[in-house]
Design a protein around this nucleic acid. Structure first.
Length: 596
DNA sequence: CATTTATAAATTTTT
DNA sequence: TTTATAAATG
């Protein structure tokens, strides 16, 4: 699997390697220079096409390190490179591939100094960002007021929306958060303080990664150097990019116009993250002389299902018209089942699933899809009652769990002592330490220029002394060893300090302790602490249940998934529950034609 | 006085 | 299940 370790043996792709492609796919794969837009309907072999294009470009002599492959998840990038590698041998590690955020992280560590950014910066995930905003809110006194102020997670969402859509706060509030309009003044004050604090702490949130990359492209020599690195830029899932991402691409391709974007306007499902189908619709105008290739032959579904999809899309107002077809005919049409209430729905679905299982279709080849996570609550109860094993995708993620965040906070302090959020987290676990004490400590630390080595000088209240002394010992010991201590060993030291605290802090310690062990195993794969931390925030591993739920390889289980998490997956039978008004589409997005 | 514990209230979807 | 507020504790 690790092609990056292999020497760069030339394996020229031959004509027969591409013989499995249909004419449209082949046209896209072998497109020469200049902008290319591939409109790829669901199930039309999009991944395959992009993978083959990567292979084709490399076999045409483009060095892998001069390719930039932007995908929606790292998994997608890995899958694509793996498939490309089966056509044409190359060191996949040389290709610049990953999400916009991950690439931004990499470039900013190389070039960020030109924006006054330390290469030691740490990245805040969404809940870190929300926590910081919450602190600022209470500091500025917006916590307790006659009129209720939005909660920190809402504040973060609004901030992100403003950053990504490039619209003024008032406009975003009026359209997306009308119930928060009264708070506009306070929000503006909080936002500017938030920006100031992030700068001082050398931390970036998810949105900053894109904003700073975009800014980096405007720095005279630097932007040009970055653009010139890449001979070809390829972007997957283009319908789910936002305006900033489109701007970055523009700046990357001011001279060299080799850009391939793949997407399907009909599958745009991330508008809540400020993604806009404008990007894909306007692409030919932003990049004049674009070649457009449309993939319409579907390999996933039988014709009656496509008929249904086509009929739905026929109602859409803004789109690239396409007509999906399949050579797979079938007499069986999609079935609409009307049920009276939720218990009946759960029952009907279970009956059908078991019926199909009896006919020899394993649970693995069946899936239940729904719009929102909680839609499967009742069904889950029924599945448990009937002993039908299942796995749910789209739940709480590993990194979001408190104990994992706790442990990571130690690492973050060591990486970036200015990261006050992490100090907060760590000190707050100590007996006798609360917000006030942390604040005093941080002021003292600041006056010592955030030197971890001098933290021992700082006076703590008597109740906190014992814990604080031990914390000092830990941090100083790991700090002193520095780069000589492997990341996993650092995690081990921290576990030794932190694990005794877990039962005191949380009431279900054992699964949490297991997660911490897993975290240490995960750390084993990383050379540097900085890489480990960046990967954890930018590409977090799947749910913690992945390990906790004793997954045996030969087990059979049913998949429950949100429609979002199901993107690109396939099953033999699919049940869509809660297919009712207000759920599909969500009543949050039925206000204008574009959203619908 | 700050921290901890207890109690009440709220919760607009998707990563 | 999380979060804001109030009361109790050290």
């Amino acid at each position: 699997m690790d092609e990056s370790a292999l020497p760069d043996q030339e394996k020229r792709a031959s004509a027969e390697d591409f013989s499995g492609l249909n004419p449209q796919q082949l046209r896209a794969v072998q497109h020469g220079n200049g902008p290319l837009l591939i409109i790829a309907g669901a199930g039309t072999g999009k991944t395959r096409t992009l993978a083959y294009r990567v292979a084709w470009l490399i076999s045409q002599g483009v060095p892998p390190e001069r390719l930039l492959l932007l995908t929606f998840t790292r998994r997608a990038a890995e899958e694509m490179l793996r498939r490309a590698g089966s056509v044409c041998r190359f060191a996949s590690g040389r290709v610049w591939s990953g999400t916009f955020h991950a690439i931004a992280n990499r470039l900013l560590r190389m070039y960020g100094s030109s924006l006054g950014l330390s290469s030691q910066f740490t990245v805040l995930d969404e809940s870190d960002a929300a926590d910081l905003l919450g602190l600022i809110r209470s500091k500025l006194g917006y916590g307790s007021r006659e009129q209720r102020f939005p909660r920190k997670t809402t504040i973060r969402a609004i901030y992100s929306r403003v950053a990504n859509s490039r619209e003024p706060l008032s406009r975003v509030l009026a359209r997306d958060y009308p119930w928060c309009r009264h708070a506009e003044g306070g929000l503006a004050a909080i936002f500017s303080e938030y920006a100031r604090q992030k700068q001082a702490r050398q931390v970036l949130d998810y949105d900053d990664l894109l904003l700073f990359w975009n800014e980096l492209m405007d720095v005279p020599r630097v932007g040009q150097a970055i653009a010139e690195r890449f001979e070809h830029v390829l972007v997957d899932e283009y319908q789910d990019t936002n305006l900033i991402q489109a701007e970055i691409l523009q700046k990357l391709r001011r001279r060299n116009r080799n850009i391939t974007v793949v997407g399907d306007d009909a599958q745009s499902i991330y508008s809540f993250r400020a993604a806009t189908i404008r990007n894909i619709l306007d692409f030919p105008r932003q990049f004049p002389d674009t070649t457009i290739v449309t993939l319409e032959e579907n390999y996933r579904s039988v014709q009656p299902i496509l008929d249904l999809g086509n009929a739905v899309m026929a109602e859409a107002k803004f789109k690239y018209t396409k007509n999906l077809f399949s050579s797979r005919q079938s007499a069986q049409r999609p079935v609409l089942v009307v049920v009276r209430d939720e218990p009946e729905q759960a029952e009907v679905v279970c009956e059908k699933i078991l019926g199909h299982l009896d006919e020899g279709i394993p649970l693995m080849e069946q899936a239940v899809l729904f719009r929102a996570g909680y839609h499967s609550d009742q069904l889950e109860i029924e599945l448990v009652r009937r002993n039908i094993p299942f796995r749910k995708y789209g739940g709480l993620r590993f990194l979001e769990t408190a104990h994992v965040k706790d442990l990571i906070a130690f690492l973050r302090i060591l990486e970036n002592p200015r990261d006050e959020m992490s100090w907060f987290r760590v000190l707050d676990m100590l007996e006798g330490v609360g917000p006030r004490t942390v604040e005093r400590f941080l002021a003292e630390l600041e006056s010592r220029d955030y030197a971890v080595t001098r933290m021992g000088e700082i006076e703590m209240p008597p109740a906190a002394r014992e814990g604080f002394t031990r914390l000092c010992e830990l941090l100083l010991a790991v700090h002193a060893r520095g780069e000589n201590l492997p990341v996993a060993a650092q995690v081990e030291r921290i576990r030794f300090f932190y694990e005794p605290l877990v039962p005191l802090l949380y009431d279900n310690p054992s699964p949490r302790l297991r997660d911490l062990e897993q975290l240490q195993l995960l750390a084993n794969r990383y050379e540097s602490r900085s890489d480990f931390l960046a990967d954890l925030t930018l590409d977090p591993p799947e749910a913690t249940g992945e390990w906790a739920g004793r997954p045996r390889k030969d087990d059979d289980w049913l998949v429950l998934s949100t429609m979002h998490s199901a993107k690109g997956c396939e099953w033999k039978f699919v049940y869509i529950i809660h297919a009712a008004d207000g759920n599909i589409p969500s009543d949050m997005s039925t206000e204008d034609d574009e959203q619908v």
